[in-house]
């Protein structure tokens, strides 16, 4: 009944040992592979026939493609489309991992901060490296907004720098915390149902409330899973926009 237990990383197959660290095939890796397989089934399997009039799955694949493409184009412009494969991969991967995590007994890969930090740093470093590579030192104009009176410019620049470097933190913690908190809440209410259910008839009546709450929360968690994947993707688009157009 421990609500934290679900986040345990378990070694399924030990593989190699580097120094003190055991590299193993874990439940986290297994669910990442499942997500990869599902995405490939949708994006490659369903589009194999290249039908002019798409079937249901091909239409879904096309819908996701156009959704991500429109989101990226509207926030980073046509020039930002060179990052389309990156944004698309991040979006569908996080989306599928989040949704799989709702299934009972499944493991939620995105509830581990190291994973969300890795994604956030990937985006952050892409922005910094591409920004300097493409614009050189003009990329630093990002921190100096135009049209600001000179006497408050140092202050504004300091704030801009701080907010820029806190991006990967908020970017990763938002997804991690949402996934973690939602799953803990679900587990706690689920635990109430089981505990009260063991107390006989009165307990059965008492368990109805947490059971209803669990049901509603599951629906809410589904929404959060979709929404957080979308939020992660759209923030990625907005940050990439800075790499493409730093001049504002």
């Amino acid at each position: 009944m421990d609500p934290i237990h679900q986040f345990e990383i378990k070694n399924l197959l030990p593989i190699i040992r580097i120094g003190g660290t055991e590299i193993a095939f874990t439940n986290s890796a297994l669910f990442m592979l499942i997500a990869l397989a599902l995405i490939l089934a949708l994006m490659l399997g369903a589009t194999r026939s290249r039908a002019l009039v798409p079937g249901r799955l091909q239409a879904t694949a096309e819908m996701v493609y156009e959704f991500v493409a429109d989101t990226l184009r509207s926030s980073a412009g046509q020039e930002g489309m060179k990052f389309f494969p990156l944004v698309f991969s991040i979006f569908v991967f996080i989306l599928v991992l989040n949704v799989i995590g709702i299934i009972p007994y499944a493991f939620t890969v995105t509830s581990h901060i190291i994973i969300t930090v890795a994604f956030a740093l990937l985006v952050f470093l892409t922005v910094v490296i591409y920004g300097f590579w493409r614009h050189g030192l003009r990329f630093l104009k990002l921190f100096v907004p135009s049209g600001i009176p000179i006497y408050i410019l140092p202050l504004v620049t300091a704030i801009e720098v701080m907010s820029f470097f806190s991006r990967p933190v908020s970017h990763s913690v938002r997804l991690f915390a949402n996934m973690l908190a939602g799953h803990i809440t679900l587990k706690v209410f689920g635990g109430f149902v089981v505990m009260l259910g063991g107390l006989g008839l009165l307990g059965w009546l008492g368990a109805a409330l947490p059971l209803a709450l669990t049901t509603v929360l599951t629906a809410l968690e589904l929404l959060v899973a979709l929404l957080q994947a979308y939020v992660f993707a759209i923030l990625t688009c907005i940050y990439l926009n800075d790499a493409v157009h730093p001049g504002h």
Binding site: I9, I18, T21, E22, I23, A24, F25, T26, S28, A29, M32, H112, I114, I115, A118
Partner: peptide, 9 residues
């Protein structure tokens, strides 16, 4: 667990 998670990711 970080190293193995990062590696698989």
């Amino acid at each position: 667990t970080f190293v193995s998670q990062l590696l698989w990711l």
